[in-house]
């Protein structure tokens, strides 16, 4: 088990493996996205209150889920970085951040578009909107800190500490902001209760959620491969890789 773990954490092995994995992920992602979008935008019944405007939920909610999910995944990488100092975890940690920024901005933008017809305003100082915006700044802080430090291994350790501090703070920020102001509609889906949503609406939503997760996997791997080659520029396996490619 440990041996398998170490082999997987070796940069050269990861580079080759991820290169083979990406096409499969794309093959899963595309049909999920198409079927999920078709189900959400065409076949799902329209909402009795919000009409067709609710359909933006199929992008908004998965994006908002992902924005939090990626931060939690980053916290796991941060623990691995701090305890076992595995180089691959450092790279996966920092490669996750831009994807997290993307999903957070997507959630904010779609939320704003949804807010205009429903609440009559592009932006309101509502609890969830505000804590999502703060999450965006937490992501940007991670990227800013990493970029500012030359030595990338040191930078990764600093970033790991920052991500763990942020993870402790996210629930505190969330609940304090919620206490401060609430206008957002309550969650329709929680893990513990039966969803208050029609099953024909729910299935496309879950498909979109899985599609977004796979998309995270794809862009994470692409980012990580680039970061890996950049960091290991002078190592033997990168030179071998370049020679192989120039031959073929």
């Amino acid at each position: 088990m440990m041996q398998w773990f170490h082999r997987m954490a070796s940069p050269a092995w990861f580079y080759r493996f991820s290169g083979k994995l990406i096409p499969f992920l794309i093959l899963t992602f595309t049909p999920l996205l198409i079927i999920g979008l078709y189900g959400g935008l065409v076949t799902a019944p329209s909402d009795y209150q919000q009409g067709d405007a609710f359909r933006i939920i199929y992008v908004h909610v998965p994006a908002a889920w992902m924005s939090l999910f990626i931060y939690i995944v980053m916290a796991v990488y941060a623990v691995i970085t701090l305890i076992w100092r595995i180089k691959l975890a450092e790279i996966l940690l920092i490669s996750s951040a831009p994807v997290g920024v993307g999903f957070t901005i997507l959630a904010l933008a779609t939320g704003s578009l949804w807010g205009k017809p429903m609440w009559g305003t592009w932006w309101s100082w509502d609890a969830r909107l505000t804590s999502e915006l703060l999450l965006l700044f937490l992501y940007l802080g991670v990227i800013g800190l990493y970029r500012a430090i030359e030595e990338k291994r040191t930078a990764s350790r600093f970033v790991s500490i920052l991500v763990l501090v942020g993870t402790v703070n996210i629930p505190i920020i969330h609940y304090s902001v919620e206490w401060w102001n609430t206008l957002h509609q309550g969650s329709t889906i929680t893990l513990t209760e039966k969803p208050s949503m029609h099953i024909d609406m729910l299935i496309p939503l879950l498909m979109m959620a899985i599609a977004f997760k796979v998309f995270y996997g794809i862009s994470l791997l692409i980012q990580a491969r680039a970061e890996l080659v950049e960091r290991e520029f002078n190592s033997r396996w990168v030179r071998e890789l370049v020679e192989e490619n120039s031959d073929g």
């Binding site: 700044f137 937490l138 500012a148 703070n169 304090s176 902001v177």
Partner: peptide
């Protein structure tokens, strides 16, 4: 966290201010 970075005022604000929100609110 930013001890190794000289001239870091803006970065410090970016890192710190989101974490100050709960204290400010209460």
């Amino acid at each position: 966290l930013i001890i190794v970075i000289p001239h870091n005022g803006m970065l410090l604000a970016l890192l710190v201010l989101p974490l100050y929100v709960p204290a400010l609110i209460f």
